[in-house]
Computed example of a mutant assay.
Amino acid sequence: MALLETAPVASDWLKSEDGSFRSRDTAIIAAGAGKLKTGTVLALVAATGKYVPAASSGNDGSQTAVAVLFTPVDATSADQKAVIVSRQAIASHAGLTYGPTINDATKRAAANGQLKAVGIIVREGA
């Protein structure tokens, strides 16, 4: 018997947010970022003001995790407007998706620390 697989939803990772949706903002996801799921950890590229999946290194802002994608988007070939969580929230680590260069526990811990600096607390477990 095959297991039913469902698409990720925000409640997989977002466990608490500030009232009146104050935790959320609208943002532009940069073209070329690809198909991103809810829970993707994002960084803000300083020169463009657009968001991309956070990277483990860089010098343009992409190396600093500052938000988490709330709504899935396909920014493969064009910029896309999206809703992000950028402050005052609690997230479960199990539902977060990190950029391809954030590929080990040390790098994930660093990204989670960066999220904490903007008020997004990442907790182990549900």
Rank of each mutant, 00 (worst) to 15 (best):
E17F: 04
I84F: 03
P53K: 06
D74Y: 09
Q88D: 14
Q114C: 02
Q80I: 06
S86K: 13
A65Q: 11
R87F: 00
N59S: 15
D25S: 13
F70H: 14
Q80L: 05
A2S: 12
V68C: 02
A2D: 11
G99F: 07
G125L: 05
T106G: 09
L69Y: 05
D60G: 15
G95M: 09
I84N: 02
L4W: 01
R108G: 00
R123W: 01
H93V: 04
K35G: 08
N59L: 08
S56V: 01
G119M: 05
R87S: 13
K50M: 06
G32N: 08
A126H: 04
P8M: 11
A94L: 13
A46Y: 06
K81D: 06
G61H: 03
L44K: 12
P72W: 06
L44C: 00
I120D: 07
A33V: 02
V85K: 03
Q63A: 11
I90R: 13
G58K: 03
Q63C: 00
A55N: 00
H93G: 15
V73A: 08
T48H: 04
V52I: 15
T71D: 13
E17T: 04
D60N: 15
G34C: 14
A117Y: 03
S77L: 12
R108W: 01
S92T: 12
P53R: 03
S86R: 14
T38G: 15
T76M: 03
G125H: 07
F70R: 13
K50D: 05
F70Q: 10
R22S: 12
A27K: 00
R108D: 00
T38C: 15
A65E: 10
T64M: 03
T71V: 05
S86A: 14
I29P: 06
T76R: 03
V68E: 04
T26D: 07
Q88N: 13
D12S: 14
N59V: 08
Q63S: 11
S23R: 05
N103Q: 02
G39W: 03
G113Q: 09
K81L: 10
P8E: 07
R24C: 11
K107V: 03
D104T: 04
P8Y: 04
G113M: 04
G113F: 02
V73H: 06
L96T: 10
V9N: 09
A31L: 07
R24W: 02
S92E: 09
